[in-house]
Simulated scan of single mutants.
Amino acid sequence: MGKLPDYIGISAFGIKMGVIIPGSDVVNMVYEALQKLESDGLLDDGDTICVTESIVARAQNNYVTVKDIADQVTNKLNLKKDSKIGVVFPILSRNRFSLILKGLAKAVPQGEVVVQLSHPSDEVGNQILPYDFAENIGKTNGEIITCQDLGNNRYKHPITKVDYISLYEEIIKEQGAQANIFLCNSPSKITEFKLDGIVVSSVHNRQRVLTKIKETNQNSITLQELCNEGDCSSEWGLLGSNISAGDKLKLAPKAADEVARLIQEKVIKDINKKVEVIIYGDGAYCDPTTGIYELADPKPTFGMTDGLKGKYREGVKYKYLVDQLYSEGADLDNIEKTLQAKSKDFDKYSIEAEGTTPRKTEDLIASLADLVSGSADAGTPVIVVKGFLNGRIN
C-alpha cells in the first residue's frame, strides 16, 4: 500500500485503534496510529485528522453522576427537596436525556417535576405526535396538549418504538417526585405553573428559550450551566453528554482545542507533516426518511486547530458552467481550461457560484467524519480526511 493516486479526490477513511480508557494518553495513541499511516505513505500535508470527542472525554475521565447533577441544580436554583422544578423542551432520547432527567428529579424527591415538550417533534426531529394531531383536536400552537388529550394509545417514536412520555414519567416517579408532562410550543407557557426554578433543556435554541422564560421567571438556567466547573466538567455543561455505565454520564471533552493543538504539534515535530486536527461529535445530518436531525451535540466540532477556524468552503458551480459554455459552442478543451481558471478566481456572489452556499469547513469535515465513523462498532475513532483542504477554502 502506498500514496493514493492523484485521480482520487476528497476521501475519508477510518483508523482502527486500541481501546481508550480513563487515563489513556489519547494524544500519543492518535500519534502512533498516524505513524502507521506515514510508514505506508498515506499521510500528507493538508490532511485533516478527525478524532471523535468520546475517546477524548473518556481519556480525561470526564464523567459525572446523577447525584452530581442533583447537587448542581439544587445549588444553582436554590431548590429544596419539596420544590417544584420545570424542565422545558428536552430532546427525546434515552442516551442523551434520561439520566439528566433522573438527576433533576433526584433534586426534588418530595416535590414535582413539570416537563414541557415541543410537538410534533423535539428540536432534532424525534417525533412525539402525528404531524396533524394538534390540528385535528383543535389546538393552536400556543395551547397545551395534555396527556389526557393524547389518550391511552400514545404515539411511539418511529424508530425506537419508545413512548417517551411514559418513560420520562417513570424516571421522575422513581426518584419520588410527582410528574406533570404536557406539550406546548410556546416556551413561556411553563412559567404559568408557579415553579421554584426552570431548566431550559433544549440544545440549539437554548438561549432564545431562556430569554423568553426570563421575562417572567428569573430563576432559570440552561443545561450548559450544569456541570461546567470543577475537575469533571465541560464548558458545554451537560450539553453533548452521553449515558455511560450505571448512573454516570460522559460529558463533552474539556479544552478540546488544546488537545487538537497537541496532536498537530506532535505530528509536525516527529513526522514533519502539516495536518489540521478536529475533535468532532455529531455530524449535522438530517435523515431524509425519518426527518431526524442527528446533531444532538451543541455543534459538530468541539475543538480544532487554528488553520480551520473561520474558514468556509465555497466554489463555482461546475454543472452550470459546463452547460453554459457548451451552449455557447465551446469545445471540451476550452471548457476544461475555463473551469480550471474559474476555480481559482471567481466572484462568490456571481451566478457562477449560485447553489454553492459557503459553509463552515469545520462543520462539513466533522459531518463527513461522523458519517464514516458512525456510532456503533466500526472501531475507528480517528478519521483521516484527504483532499478537502485542497479545494476552495477561504
Rank of each mutant, 00 (worst) to 15 (best):
F193N: 10
G291V: 09
L223N: 12
N228H: 09
V267N: 03
E276K: 04
I278V: 12
C184R: 00
I213P: 05
D287Q: 04
E294C: 11
S186Q: 14
L210K: 09
R206F: 06
I243K: 12
K194T: 12
V199A: 04
A245D: 11
I263D: 01
E294G: 15
L295P: 01
G246V: 08
S234I: 05
R206D: 10
E235Y: 10
A252W: 10
Y280A: 01
Q264M: 11
R206M: 12
I279Q: 03
V203A: 04
L195A: 02
L210Q: 07
S188G: 15
L238E: 02
Y280P: 03
S241M: 06
T216F: 10
E225M: 06
F193D: 12
A260T: 01
A255N: 14
Q224F: 00
A252C: 06
E229K: 03
T216K: 14
F182D: 08
A296V: 15
V199K: 07
I190D: 03
V259L: 11
L251E: 07
I243C: 10
F182I: 10
G240T: 07
T216A: 06
G281Q: 05
L308F: 00
P288H: 11
E276D: 11
M304D: 00
V277N: 04
K194L: 12
S234V: 06
I221A: 09
K273V: 14
E258F: 12
Y285T: 09
G237K: 02
K273A: 06
K194F: 14
V203M: 05
K189Y: 09
Q207T: 12
I198M: 05
